[in-house]
Amino acid sequence: MDIRTEKPEDLTAVREVNMMAFGRANEANLVDRLRGIRSTFSFVAVQSDRIVGQVFFSPVTLVEKCSRELSILGLGPVAVLPKYQRQGIGTLLIQHGLKECVRSGFHAVFVLGNPNFYSRFGFIPASRKNLRCEYDVPDEAFMVLELESGALDNCSSTVKYRSEFSICD
């Protein structure tokens, strides 16, 4: 299994992975809309020369400012072809992506997802850091991982996703 940065020639395969993983076009369309925006990251899992998974990170903002300027991202979607699910590929993609986020100097990553899954990576409910999602979602499902210890201290804000997330497919 090779995890690497998405290349231009991967676009069709990445779209197929998202379509098949979610059984609809919404996530594939979202990735297409976000691709190319500054500070986005897309990593793919390749097995036997076939793209079998993808993880995407895009910038999010805090509505109210913290005591310092922060560079933060949202994680998602994470997609793995159904035939390859439950084999640890999503975990490898997320681990690789988080390491790249640290290396690139980001301070925190937010995710909206299954707390049982994402807590394995160190994500905690964002409410513990006085942060909330702009969307009406369960408290335990909106989580954050500080990539720099204490980065979110003295913050109290709403996390806002890019407008591309609000487009209905």
Results as ranks from 00 to 15, higher is better:
L11H: 12
A13K: 12
V14Y: 06
R15H: 14
E16C: 04
E16Y: 05
M19Q: 13
F22Y: 13
F22M: 03
F22D: 05
R24N: 15
A25Q: 13
N29T: 06
L30E: 02
L30W: 01
V31P: 09
V31H: 09
D32N: 11
D32K: 13
R33W: 08
R33Y: 07
R33S: 09
R33M: 11
L34H: 07
I37C: 06
T40S: 09
T40K: 07
F43D: 10
F43S: 08
V44P: 05
A45P: 02
A45D: 04
V46T: 10
R50Y: 05
I51G: 01
I51Q: 01
I51P: 00
I51A: 02
V55Y: 00
F56W: 08
S58Q: 11
P59G: 10
V60W: 08
V60Q: 11
L62S: 01
K65N: 14
S67W: 11
R68W: 07
R68T: 14
E69N: 13
E69F: 10
S71Y: 05
I72M: 15
I72W: 06
G74W: 02
P77G: 09
P77V: 02
P77K: 03
P77E: 13
V78P: 03
V78M: 06
A79D: 01
V80Y: 06
V80N: 07
